[in-house]
């Protein structure tokens, strides 16, 4: 299990990194921590000619705290969120999510931007940041910058909005009021494994915001508007049958065990959120 030979570039600046993406003839892959790409290379499932490592770029490791948002550099590592060294847009949620990602050695190297771009349906940030209403900032080889809402970022399993000449530079997360609540629950076979089911709920009465998201489905995270409204209005954990009916509408033909687990995950995450008060 050794990779096919490849060129390895470690640019010193973001500008240098984007310049490297200009040659469209070259089969290039960005590495931002390598915790998923590494195994794919070793299994020879990924065979790029060139790898550009951006995990060390200082421009991608900054935090910009605005009044209404926090912008997290894409190369911030899961462990940095876990250890509480970064500000929280909503009390404790990103720290909680980070703590549940894989194992500590993975969290020491894996980055938030890398995880988003890999777009494994069962990964945590994809679902958590969708619930948080985050936006992904992307720059292109030409130097253009665009912002993509998380609801449009992931196209399907391992497919995203990011083009081959683009790099994700940061994730912008809105700030929530002190009266906001959140819940995040996942089930997995063992500690550190990818999830079998994820549900997240974030709500802020001040912002009149409520969003229910299901993750670890076959593709992008699924938002339920009716459940978001129902939970915000009633302040109660929805019944399993109600959630299952909604899942049937949103994702018809889901395996019944998966559907059940997603329903349980949502019940538990809302319970967790409502007990926060």
């Amino acid at each position: 299990m050794k990779p096919v030979g490849f060129q390895f570039a470690q640019p010193e600046t973001l500008a240098e990194a984007t310049r490297m993406l200009r040659d469209p003839g070259e089969d290039t892959k960005i590495m931002a921590g390598g915790q998923s790409l590494g195994p794919m290379l070793n299994l020879r499932l990924a065979r790029p000619e060139k790898i550009i490592s951006i995990a060390g770029l200082s421009e991608l490791r900054v935090v910009d705290e605005g009044a209404d948002f926090i912008e997290f550099g894409a190369a911030l590592r899961h462990a940095e969120f876990e250890d509480g060294s970064l500000p929280e847009p909503i009390d404790g949620m990103m720290r909680h999510v980070a703590r549940g990602i894989a194992y500590r050695p993975v969290r020491n190297r894996g980055t938030i931007g890398g995880s988003l771009c890999h777009a494994d349906p069962a990964a945590d940030w994809i679902t958590a940041l969708t619930a948080l209403g985050a936006t992904v900032r992307i720059v292109s080889a030409k130097g253009d910058t665009r912002d993509v809402d998380m609801t449009r970022f992931m196209h399907g399993a391992y497919r995203t909005e990011v083009n081959s000449d683009e790099i994700v530079t940061s994730v912008i997360v809105p700030r929530y009021s002190p009266s906001a609540v959140w819940g995040y629950y996942k089930t997995c076979r063992k500690v550190g494994e990818f999830a079998d089911a994820i549900a997240a709920w974030v709500a802020d009465p001040v912002k009149r915001y409520s969003r229910v998201v299901f993750g670890a489905t076959a593709g992008a995270p699924i938002i339920s508007v009716p459940l978001s409204q129902q939970i915000a209005t009633t302040g109660e954990v929805p019944g399993k049958d109600v959630i299952k009916t909604e899942l049937e509408r949103l994702a018809p033909g889901l395996d019944r065990v998966k559907q059940h687990l997603l329903a349980v995950a949502l019940q538990r995450c809302t319970k967790q959120a409502l007990n926060h008060d």
Binding site: P39, L43, R189, K190, V191, G192, E193, F194
Partner: peptide, 13 residues
């Protein structure tokens, strides 16, 4: 064919 699919128990389990 990988340890992500063939699950071995870890200390936490």
């Amino acid at each position: 064919s990988t340890l992500a699919d063939y699950i071995l128990p870890g200390p936490a389990e």
